[in-house]
C-alpha cells in the first residue's frame, strides 16, 4: 500500500518550503505548503532546510580584531581627504606600580581569618522544600503581566492547592 501523497499529480515546488520558513509565501502558497506537510517526505525536506537556516541564523556573529575600528575611521577619513588631529588617540601612559606591603599582608591576614570564620560559622546547605503550588501561582502572576491577563490568571482560581 502506498501512502497518500497530497502533492501527487501537481508537482510541489520545494522552494516554497524556504519561502514558508521566511514568511515569504502568499496565503495560497502557505496553505499549499501546510497541506503538503501531511506528507512525511515533504516534512523531512522542510526539516532539512530549516536546520540549515537555523544553523546560519544562530551562529554567533564574528568580531573584528582589536583596533579595527580605529583603523577604519582613519582610512575612511583619509579616503575623503579629511584629517582630524583632535581624533588622534592620546598616548597611553603606564601607571606606576605601587607597592604597599603592609596592606598586602593585612589583606592576606583578613582573608585567612575569613576562611577560618567561614569554616567555623557557615552552616551546611539548607534543605529546600519548594512550595510548588505557590510557585505555579507566581508564574501565572508574572505571565499575566506580559500576556493576556484573563487566561493567565484563570489557573490561579482553579488550582486550589497543588495537585499533580
Amino acid at each position: 500500500m502506498t501512502a497518500f501523497d497530497p502533492t501527487a499529480g501537481a508537482p510541489f515546488d520545494d522552494s516554497l518550503l524556504s519561502a514558508w520558513l521566511d514568511d515569504e509565501c502568499t496565503p495560497a502558497e502557505a496553505a499549499a505548503v501546510e497541506a503538503a506537510l501531511a506528507s512525511p517526505d515533504v516534512a523531512a525536506r522542510l526539516a532539512e532546510v530549516a536546520s540549515a537556516r537555523t544553523a546560519v541564523r544562530s551562529a554567533p556573529w564574528p568580531e573584528p580584531p582589536a583596533g579595527f575600528w580605529d583603523r577604519v575611521h582613519a582610512a575612511v577619513d583619509a579616503a575623503d581627504g579629511v584629517t582630524d588631529s583632535v581624533a588622534a588617540p592620546a598616548p597611553v601612559v603606564a601607571l606606576p606600580v605601587r607597592r604597599r606591603p603592609t596592606r598586602w599582608v593585612a589583606a592576606l591576614g583578613a582573608a585567612a581569618a575569613a576562611v577560618v570564620a567561614a569554616v567555623v560559622l557557615v552552616p551546611g546547605p539548607a534543605t529546600v522544600r519548594p512550595a510548588v503550588g505557590t510557585l505555579v501561582d507566581a508564574h501565572a502572576l508574572r505571565s499575566s503581566i506580559q500576556g493576556d491577563a484573563a487566561s493567565t490568571l484563570a489557573p490561579i482560581a482553579v488550582s486550589a492547592g497543588f495537585r499533580p
Binding site: 539548607a126 529546600v128 522544600r129 519548594p130 508574572r142 505571565s143
Partner: peptide, 24 residues
C-alpha cells in the same frame, strides 16, 4: 522569567538541597 515570544518560563532558584521526601 524567560520568553520565546509565545511561551513564558519561570525559573525559581533557591540555595540548598532538595528535600525530596517533601515532594508530592
Amino acid at each position: 522569567y524567560y520568553s520565546d515570544g509565545l511561551f513564558g518560563v519561570s525559573v525559581f532558584e533557591r540555595e540548598g538541597t532538595l528535600d525530596r521526601a517533601s515532594l508530592t
